[in-house]
């Protein structure tokens, strides 16, 4: 019987290897659809301007604190906390105490701010 040329048999083997290779490549491509997607959550959530606005109000308040009646103080505090809650979704609380140091008399304003993501506390002396 005349024999066929068998030199091309490696092509069959290579075909099999390539098929297996493509299969694994497909698995990897499936996975790669996930890579590179990020959520739109803002990383910089710190409410800088909100806190700055309230701090600014605190300064005015500390300057005027001596001349206010208790009812006015309570009303102002209520107004600020309510506005922050309704407009900025933040819990704001503050207290004003008076003190004296070698530099003069001051009002110490303790500010507390919490919007569920950021909790911010500070205590600032305002000299008068």
């Amino acid at each position: 019987m005349e024999r066929l040329n068998e030199d091309g048999q490696w092509i069959v083997l290579m075909g099999l290897l390539v098929a297996v290779g493509i299969f694994f490549l497909a698995l990897i491509i499936n996975q790669s659809a996930l890579v590179g997607q990020t959520t739109s959550e803002a990383v910089l959530e710190f409410p800088k301007s909100d806190i700055r606005d309230i701090s600014g109000e605190m300064q005015d308040l500390a300057d005027a604190w001596e001349g206010l009646t208790e009812a006015q103080k309570a009303n102002l505090k209520n107004d600020i906390t309510t506005l922050s809650l309704y407009r900025k979704n933040a819990i704001v609380d503050f207290d004003v105490t008076s003190g004296t140091s070698s530099d003069g008399d001051f009002h110490l304003v303790g500010l507390h701010y919490n919007n569920g993501v950021t909790v911010y506390n500070d205590t600032t002396p305002y000299y008068y």
Binding site: A26, L27, Q31, L34, T39
Partner: peptide, 26 residues
């Protein structure tokens, strides 16, 4: 092999959708 590929595809779809839901949540 083919069912594994399909399953992977389905998992990828679900995970993509989890992210899409978080985008809607944001």
């Amino acid at each position: 092999g083919y069912p594994v590929l399909l399953k992977e595809q389905s998992n990828t779809d679900v995970r993509n959708m989890e992210r899409a839901m978080i985008v809607i949540q944001n």
